[in-house]
């Protein structure tokens, strides 16, 4: 479990950074998306990995924290997903505006040779 998650985060983050440094705007936005997936998984992992454990106490019981998943990272990751979704959408609009205004999808707004 730990290994799979760690590998997943690593592959996502690596691909994300690679794409982020590419010269085309579409690659940049995909890179940012992959990076944000990696970060979201990372946040979940930072709350300690637990299989099949609910994040909520049952009604009327005191409960032992060892039997429950940490709810805080789950709340954090939900917020992060929502915010990431919104900013990605916004970035997509800017990307299209840039494509429309400059006529190229290079991040500098002009082709390298010109």
């Amino acid at each position: 479990m730990e290994l799979i998650l760690a590998l997943g985060i690593g592959v996502l983050a690596g691909s994300g950074v690679w794409l982020l440094l590419r010269p085309r705007t579409f690659q940049v936005i995909i890179g940012l998306s992959l990076l944000s997936y990696a970060v979201n998984l990372f946040i979940v992992a930072m709350g300690r990995l637990k299989l099949g454990a609910p994040p909520l106490l049952e009604h009327g019981t005191a409960g032992d924290p060892a039997n429950y998943a940490d709810p805080v990272p789950q709340a954090l990751v939900l917020t992060a997903i929502v915010i990431g979704f919104a900013t990605t959408a916004l970035f997509l609009v800017v990307l299209l505006a840039s494509r429309g205004l400059t006529g190229t999808d290079h991040v500098e707004g002009r082709e390298p040779g010109s």
């Binding site: 982020l20 900013t87 970035f91 800017v94 990307l95 400059t102 707004g109």
Partner: peptide, 9 residues
Amino acid sequence: VRAGLHYIA
């Protein structure tokens, strides 16, 4: 828009 693209990224 060009500067904004960099700023947002």
